[in-house]
Amino acid sequence: MARIGAVEAGGTKMVLAIGDEAGHVTEREEIPTTTPDDCVAEMVEWFRTRDVDALGIGAFGPTAVNPSDPRFGQILETPKTAWKYYDLRGAFVRGLNVPVGYDTDVNVACLGEVVFGSAKGLSNVVYVTIGTGIGAGVMVEGNLLHGMLHAEAGHIIVPRVPGDDATCVCPYHDCCFEGMAAGPAIEHRWGKKGYELADRDEVWELESTYLAEGVSTYVLCYSPQKIVLGGGVMKQEQLFPLVRQKTLKMLNGYLVTPELQDIDNYIVPAGCGGDQGILGSLELGRRALAAK
């Protein structure tokens, strides 16, 4: 069985793993995300010494994910200035000389959930991570959504909840999903991190309203068969029934489908034990090897 490498390239850490085509992870390592000069050579060497047959990378964005784009595999505009226009995929292609699959971190997490997790076997799925930021990976008819770039659905504009006078923490928008509902928005609004507010019902009542605004928009725009919610904020499991109820209320009966009638199995927690990004990257590497 082929040895597949996986990279979950995040804004604060890089998770490296070795696994097989069936999604069995046999080795794992984490290193801080510093600069390309400081960490990429180390990562390439880690995989080189483990003799991988292929590699899959899920990268923070914005990044070029369309293979026909001459910038394919590059990090694009980013506040991490050292990474701006860095050819991340190319560094691994040159260093390892193996097939390298490449997509966004949330798209590969969506792929992981479709192949191994809560959305197994489905072809139209939205995976949303709500943590330090909000990102959405989208699969449509079995293909991860790219388009002109890739979905940045964490930055959809949401209506401000009446009575909420907290400023949006997104530097680009006055009232976007990420800026109003990600972990830093919770801390900015309430003065504490989410896990310190677990027993404050008013916190999660407000948070669930913003989450339902985002989720109901995804239902209308992408028509997914399932929506998977992951990330640190969703460890507050009391959010799930609130988000389900409010999503149905916002849709107001406009859509009538078997999926929405079974809402508890439509808006669901992530099912890969936190490994959806790594497992999706393994699958991306497997597909790159198969394509070769």
Rank of each mutant, 00 (worst) to 15 (best):
R3K: 08
I4Y: 04
V7L: 14
V7G: 08
V15G: 10
A17I: 03
G23L: 03
R28H: 14
E29A: 15
T34H: 06
P36R: 08
V40I: 12
E42V: 01
R48Q: 07
A54H: 05
A54N: 00
A54T: 05
I57F: 01
A59M: 11
G61N: 10
P62A: 06
P62G: 03
T63F: 11
T63P: 06
S68A: 15
F72Q: 12
Q74F: 08
P79S: 11
T81V: 13
K84G: 11
K84S: 13
A91S: 13
G95T: 15
G95Q: 14
V100H: 08
G101R: 06
D103T: 04
D105F: 03
D105S: 11
V106Y: 13
A109F: 06
E113G: 11
V115D: 08
V115K: 15
G121M: 11
G121P: 07
Y127R: 10
I130M: 12
G131A: 08
T132M: 11
A136Q: 02
G137I: 01
M139N: 09
N143P: 01
H150S: 13
E152L: 06
E152S: 09
G154W: 03
I157H: 10
R160Y: 01
V161W: 03
C168N: 14
C170E: 12
Y172V: 14
Y172C: 14
H173T: 07
E178F: 01
M180P: 14
E187Q: 13
G191P: 10
K193G: 14
K193I: 12
Y195T: 13
A198T: 13
V203F: 02
E205G: 11
E205Y: 00
T209E: 12
L211E: 09
Y218T: 07
V219C: 09
L220V: 00
C221Q: 14
I227Q: 01
V228K: 03
V233H: 02
V233R: 03
V233E: 06
V233S: 09
M234R: 00
M234P: 08
L239Q: 07
L242Y: 08
L242F: 03
V243T: 05
R244L: 02
L255Y: 10
E259A: 08
I263S: 03
G273Q: 05
G274N: 09
D275L: 10
Q276E: 15
G277L: 13
G280T: 06
S281N: 04
S281L: 07
S281P: 07
L282K: 08
L282Y: 05
L284V: 01
G285P: 09
L289A: 13
A290Y: 03
A291R: 14
